[in-house]
Design a protein around this nucleic acid. Structure first.
Lengths: 233, 233
DNA sequence: AAAATCCATGATGCATGCAAGACAGGGGCG
DNA sequence: CGCCCCTGTCTTGCATGCATCATGGATTTT
């Protein structure tokens, strides 16, 4: 089922990919003309793609100056994690209240595979499985609008870049895995309230661990590249 | 502090206003050329404004066919209300956990005025106060990202059109007002968990009452003008 | 030498023209 | 009489050119 995709959609998807993957760091400048040349198109569709990314909070445009990859401040990142906690907690509750749905079996399979990945020490595989886990929780909530808001949230957070760091913090890896299992069990027991509470705790703990790591490792992964102007002429 | 506003921002704000106010009903067609003429501009800024509204979920564009005001299905509306319940519930909890903040005094004042408005039977004033109440709850949560997601949600819901109907259902008006008071009291008591529970119940009850009304009053305020194709040749 | 000023440069904002596709209606054909 | 095709017209998608303005560095002034 291949649909005819316009230029602007290709550009938007490409830029989303690059920002998520880290090829475009926060604060990086995006020139319309340069992008237009690179994609072999004119500025018009590029501008529309940028407009869409702006509405999603991924980039910011300073009028007559330029467009830059969004560089959320520390406070904004904390706010985004707070919203993440809210949305994922609610999703776990809704999931639990739905009983036996296809996503539940997939979640069981995911937890089994994660257990093996942890045992094998296969970090990359575990990272992929963590993504799948949270994605399954959201899909299992059965609410497309919730899913949509969650996707935009994760894009703004540049979450994929964070997870790699977080998983390396080996201290929390087994703990995080146990929390995933606990949440699965209460979902199986259809205990929505507990599922919500555990998921919120899980997200908050993950958030805390990540912030500790960022404080520890200095600003090599700096979050506000625009605010911190390079001071070397 | 007046800022230089471009054409596309004016167009976007104007269209948001019209959709919220009901001048543009769901399913209505939006011609780029017509809008360009009306605003005395060219199609380019109009197109960018529409692109932004599309990203916000307010309009949908069928390629090579036209752009139309979004017409959420019954299911989507229920999903949106479910998300509303989640976000407002979380906001009430966060508010309660923050203790004495300026918004708390404003909330007390709002509840006092609402009580008077109910006593006077001043519907329009009460509608405005209900809006202010929920807005204060969200602001009191102290999370700008949460507020942002909430704003987009309310736009998609066309909530302003709903409230007028809902308030007319006089049976729930005193009940709704009592719920507002109860939530204020548990926020004053800094009981976040109860505040979240009560707010969720409140939103769900309001949602239920509205859906009953829509079922009762037929489809005069139809929600899916695009999906429901007229079937009379 | 320090500071204010001027200007070249490059960015976005907007206007306009052309191309391609979708849909409705009329005309031709079986 | 019914079906199909064909074309006119409207829509959006894209390309291009010009106008406007922020910005940094050279230049002039004090």
């Amino acid at each position: 089922m291949k649909v005819r995709r316009g230029v602007q959609e290709r550009v938007a998807d490409q830029l989303r990919e690059r920002i998520a993957h880290g090829d475009l760091v926060p604060g990086a400048a995006l020139s319309e003309t340069a992008l237009a040349q690179e994609f072999g198109a004119s500025r018009t569709p590029v501008r529309e793609a940028l407009k869409q990314l702006q509405a999603e909070g991924l980039i910011v445009t300073k009028p007559r100056v330029g467009t830059f990859v969004a560089a959320p401040s520390r406070r904004e990142i904390n706010e985004l994690f707070e919203v993440k906690e809210i949305l994922e907690g609610a999703a776990a509750r809704l999931f639990a209240n739905r009983g036996e749905i296809p996503e539940l079996d997939q979640l069981r399979e995911n937890v089994r595979r994660s257990e093996r990945a942890v045992g094998d020490g296969d970090f990359d595989r575990y990272v992929a499985l963590v993504h799948e886990y949270h994605d399954l929780i959201m899909r299992g909530a059965g609410n497309a609008k919730l899913m949509q808001q969650y996707r935009m949230l994760m894009n703004q957070l540049l979450y994929t870049r964070f997870v790699h760091l977080s998983v390396r913090r080996s201290g929390r890896l087994p703990q995080s895995d146990r929390e995933h299992q606990s949440i699965l069990h209460v979902i199986e027991a259809r205990d929505g309230a507990t599922a919500e509470r555990l998921m919120r705790d899980h997200v908050r703990a993950s958030h805390q661990a990540l912030m500790d790591m960022l404080d520890f490792s200095g600003d090599e992964h700096r979050l506000n590249g625009v605010n911190a102007a390079p001071e070397q002429p």
